[in-house]
Design a protein around this nucleic acid. Structure first.
Lengths: 230, 230
DNA sequence: GACATTAGTGTTTCATAGACACTATATTAG
DNA sequence: CTAATATAGTGTCTATGAAACACTAATGTC
């Protein structure tokens, strides 16, 4: 990076884009925003925006996240940086993509900050996206699936207290395949990261024990390598 | 990404930085450049430079790589994007870091393009680095180690023909621990991606069979998910 | 021809992953 | 209050992969 001599420099604008996931109704969902201006007017897009002076990339991502959803303290991870020359018709825009996980109980029902429409879409049937956001979303889903298998990111999608069945549903929604209840619970027990808490929950049938994730605070840190092999 | 209304935009310069690895003398080594200008004059740094107009990020990385080493067709993977406001004293510079793997027989002995000094350093005892390059290098090493365990990137560090012992040495150099010869070879055989080729090699002792990697061309693609579990 | 040096080769043991079905506890309806 | 319904909770066996471990084979050198 050291600009040593005379090298051609390009005027670039840098944005952050956010793939904000939640799981509701047993579906992996993503927050999208309907564009009110060209280009891609009327098209849905990932939330995002320009970085500001004196602001780190991660800070910009957290700020955009808070602006769109009002939430803070969520799992956030840098995904990839997209900078192909043609990706934005208005000029050279390099975007640093992040993905975030929001617990279902903290995901606002309709996340609208201003006049723009904003809503959750099931990833499986989202509308066509603006720019190269289709590719960003696909990559985010792939990364989330992978990460789910060897970390504990999945816990970020649940409220503080949850039942084991709820946890399993989240995993099944993201991975897109059913998991065996006994194997799932055995591995959880082996990890030893769940604490039962006082209380049970029943909607129908036998009430279920509530649990909390004992490493909750710690695992908010990026790239924690706790193994979670499904 | 979509600049919708009136948002503060920051003038940003975008660079790519390269962590170029090779393995020589049974050591993981990295290509560094001695800075001839302030800031950090006289300090060693990762090679890199500004992106050009109409040039993709990956293209910029490949171009810088070719400029420094003269090689093309190497394994290259985007690592992370660093954009903290204070990382470059000259202004706001966001850098997209890549790492590359160069086969030992293609790694130039002294990689100097112009007046700047450039040389390979063993990662284990490299000099202090300029900017935030220390962190970039550390992260690259970590990523390479991880990737080594579930992909075949390691093959990119060897000449077209190599012995199994040479391959094992490369893995040991990167992972920093000895591997069991028989287990190593058994897993290789199971993968079925090595073809013996005519010829043997001996420096001392019994000559060893030469092999080539049958998926060589294919695995140059990024993020090939061939499993290679050590 | 003895010695030094590196190549090459199998088996056993242990841990982890996956398949698989029944009992327990609560609510609701008759 | 009894039966039906609905969900929670639990253990075993089998197969596969990972790790530990030691000797024989082929070549060059003294």
């Amino acid at each position: 990076m050291p600009p040593s001599k005379r090298e051609p420099r390009t005027d670039v604008q840098v944005t952050v884009d956010l793939v904000i996931f939640t799981v509701r109704e047993d579906q992996l969902q993503v927050l999208l925003i309907e564009r009110g201006l060209p280009p891609f007017e009327g098209r849905w897009a990932l939330p995002g925006g320009f970085i500001r002076e004196g602001e780190s990339l991660e800070h910009a991502a957290l700020r955009e996240l808070a602006e769109e959803t009002g939430v803070r303290d969520v799992y956030l991870e840098q995904l990839f940086t997209f900078g192909d020359p043609g990706r934005d018709p208005r000029g050279r825009v390099v975007t640093v993509a992040y993905y975030a996980l929001i617990a279902s109980d903290r995901a606002p029902l309709v996340a609208s900050t201003d006049a723009r429409a904003a809503r959750w879409w099931p990833v499986a049937k989202h509308p066509p996206l603006a720019f190269d956001h289709e590719g960003i979303l696909e990559y985010a889903v792939e990364r989330l699936r992978n990460k789910l298998e060897y970390t504990t990111v999945g816990f970020q999608l649940l409220p503080r207290h949850f039942t084991l069945t709820e946890l399993q549903r989240v995993y099944e929604a993201i991975l897109g395949r059913p998991l065996d209840k006994r194997n799932f619970r055995r591995k959880l027990a082996l990890l030893g990261i769940l604490k039962p808490v006082k209380g049970r929950r029943a909607e129908r049938g036998r009430p279920a024990q509530l649990y909390e994730f004992s490493g909750r605070e710690f695992s908010k840190l990026k790239d924690v390598g706790i193994i979670f092999p499904f």
